[in-house]
Amino acid sequence: MSIQHFRVALIPFFAAFCLPVFAHPETLVKVKDAEDQLGARVGYIELDLNSGKILESFRPEERFPMMSTFKVLLCGAVLSRVDAGQEQLGRRIHYSQNDLVEYSPVTEKHLTDGMTVRELCSAAITMSDNTAANLLLTTIGGPKELTAFLHNMGDHVTRLDRWEPELNEAIPNDERDTTMPAAMATTLRKLLTGELLTLASRQQLIDWMEADKVAGPLLRSALPAGWFIADKSGASERGSRGIIAALGPDGKPSRIVVIYTTGSQATMDERNRQIAEIGASLIKHW
């Protein structure tokens, strides 16, 4: 067993022997300050990975656009099909120029040879490739089937209704393509630590998230040396920005953090900075 597999395998073990964890309200002060700075709603939740206990939250049951954070859930659904023998990570999918949508930095380079399901999930999570996400959605039956998968997991909140890039419209009070911080955190925890996926698939999912290449300005920018993070960011219209992450010190994840914001007129750089500052406060008061 590799060191990485050993780390994931021990998560349920540590759950039975973990020391108590305590929240620090200073982080919530920073979350509220971020709302003021951005002139927008901010949703935040911090969940103990082992016990599932909510350590701190702000607007945990308000809806926010999922943006590209849905791609982790999508690849979780794909992996569940792999575990059930209904899909193969090595299966090659061919597509055409007509399938390409905006922001497809990986898939646009493989029009001649296609990409495997594994490569598409990697592109969707690590590079947030939109065409990769659409091709993967097709393999499971579309957005409604992803919503059904989540319902079967016990998540009756999170929903995907449209494809890339339309799902990023982020219209106020529109429940399409939205989640709540509490629902997303719970669902992510189930995918990473529960029995829904095999150990190999849980490890694959967290490996893809750990290799995320487009979330550098967010929580990763505040991460001390030696800390672990596996994450997925998202951005969409109407000043929306978000990130879902499993992180912790000593090279292993111990908490789930979900941050969403929407309705801001601030620049992308400012939205990134506010999320990074929330992360810095979280780490300082860990």
Rank of each mutant, 00 (worst) to 15 (best):
Q88S: 14
L89C: 04
Q4R: 12
H24A: 07
P172C: 08
P181R: 00
P172Q: 07
A215Q: 03
V82T: 08
E195G: 10
I11R: 04
K284R: 05
L192Y: 05
C121L: 03
S264D: 11
S68R: 00
P25V: 11
L219M: 03
E277R: 07
K109A: 12
V29M: 14
E166P: 02
H110V: 02
H156C: 13
V72C: 02
G90K: 12
P105S: 04
S240Q: 06
T267Y: 04
A211H: 14
L219C: 01
N130D: 03
T126M: 06
L146I: 05
E102G: 05
E145C: 07
K252S: 11
P60Q: 12
P253I: 06
I243Y: 04
G242T: 00
N50D: 13
R241I: 04
V21A: 14
K30I: 06
S80M: 11
A9V: 10
S57V: 06
L135V: 11
S221P: 05
R81I: 03
Q86W: 13
P217I: 03
S201G: 09
E169C: 11
P165G: 03
F13A: 13
D36R: 15
V72I: 07
P60Y: 04
E175H: 11
A215T: 05
E56V: 04
Q265K: 14
K252C: 11
P12T: 15
L55A: 02
V157A: 14
L19W: 14
I244M: 04
M153C: 13
L79N: 01
L10R: 09
N272M: 01
K252G: 06
A170G: 15
N173E: 15
M115G: 01
G85L: 06
I243F: 03
P60D: 15
P25Y: 06
S254H: 09
T179S: 05
L100K: 02
N50G: 14
E237Q: 14
A84V: 14
I243E: 01
L49Q: 02
L38R: 03
P217T: 07
I3R: 06
E175G: 05
Q204Y: 09
R241H: 04
E56G: 08
Q265M: 14
L199S: 13
R118Q: 15
G90N: 15
I206L: 14
T178I: 01
L47Q: 05
F13G: 07
L218Q: 02
Q88D: 12
K213L: 12
G226I: 00
G154D: 04
I243D: 00
E56L: 03
P105A: 03
T139A: 11
G239R: 03
G239E: 01
A211C: 09
G85A: 10
P172R: 08
L188W: 01
L218Y: 02
D207V: 10
P12I: 15
H151V: 14
N173W: 14
R81W: 04
D231F: 01
P172A: 10
M153A: 13
P65K: 04
F70N: 01
T187P: 00
K213M: 10
Q97G: 14
S254E: 14
E166C: 12
A34T: 05
T187M: 05
R63Q: 04
P12S: 14
P249T: 02
P224D: 02
P253D: 02
R220G: 01
H285R: 06
R159G: 01
D269E: 14
L111P: 08
M115C: 05
P165A: 04
L196I: 15
H94N: 13
K213I: 07
A222S: 12
D231E: 03
S221D: 08
V82G: 03
H156R: 11
W163C: 08
H151S: 14
L167H: 02
P60H: 12
R118V: 09
V78G: 00
E87M: 08
V42R: 00
A183I: 06
S221C: 09
D269V: 09
G194E: 08
A182V: 12
L192G: 00
A84G: 12
G194T: 14
L49C: 01
C75R: 00
N134H: 01
L89V: 04
D174P: 01
I244Y: 00
V101E: 10
K32W: 09
S221V: 08
Q203H: 10
H24V: 07
Q204A: 10
H151E: 13
E164R: 00
S57T: 09
L120G: 00
V42M: 07
Q203E: 09
F14A: 13
F13L: 09
S80I: 08
G251A: 09
I256L: 08
R162T: 05
N173S: 13
A222T: 13
P224F: 00
L137A: 02
E108C: 07
D83A: 02
R63H: 05
L55K: 03
R202L: 02
N130Q: 02
N134R: 01
P20A: 05
N173I: 08
S80G: 11
G141A: 03
A215N: 02
T138K: 15
V42L: 08
K109R: 14
E175C: 10
V106S: 06
N98M: 14
Q86I: 13
F70L: 05
A235T: 04
W208M: 03
H94V: 14
T126N: 03
T126S: 10
A15R: 02
L223I: 11
N168Q: 06
D231Y: 02
A183K: 04
D207S: 15
L223S: 02
L247M: 08
P25L: 09
I243N: 00
E175V: 13
S80K: 14
Q88M: 11
L219S: 01
A148E: 15
V106D: 06
E119N: 07
I93F: 03
A222R: 14
E35Q: 04
L218N: 02
L191I: 11
E270Q: 14
Y103V: 05
C18W: 12
N152T: 14
A211P: 02
T178G: 01
L47T: 08
G141E: 10
I283M: 07
L160V: 10
P224E: 01
R63A: 03
I275L: 08
A16Q: 15
H110Q: 10
N168P: 02
R118A: 14
L10H: 07
G251E: 07
T179G: 00
L10W: 08
A170L: 12
G76C: 10
M268E: 09
V21G: 08
S201H: 05
K284M: 13
S57W: 10
K144W: 08
V42G: 00
E87S: 02
K252I: 14
M268P: 09
M67C: 11
A84C: 07
H156Q: 11
Y103R: 02
I45S: 04
M127V: 14
A215V: 01
P143G: 01
L55R: 05
I54M: 06
T179E: 00
L282M: 12
M115V: 01
Q97A: 14
E145A: 13
R63K: 07
A183H: 11
D83T: 01
P249V: 02
G154R: 02
Q88R: 12
M268Y: 08
F70I: 03
G279V: 04
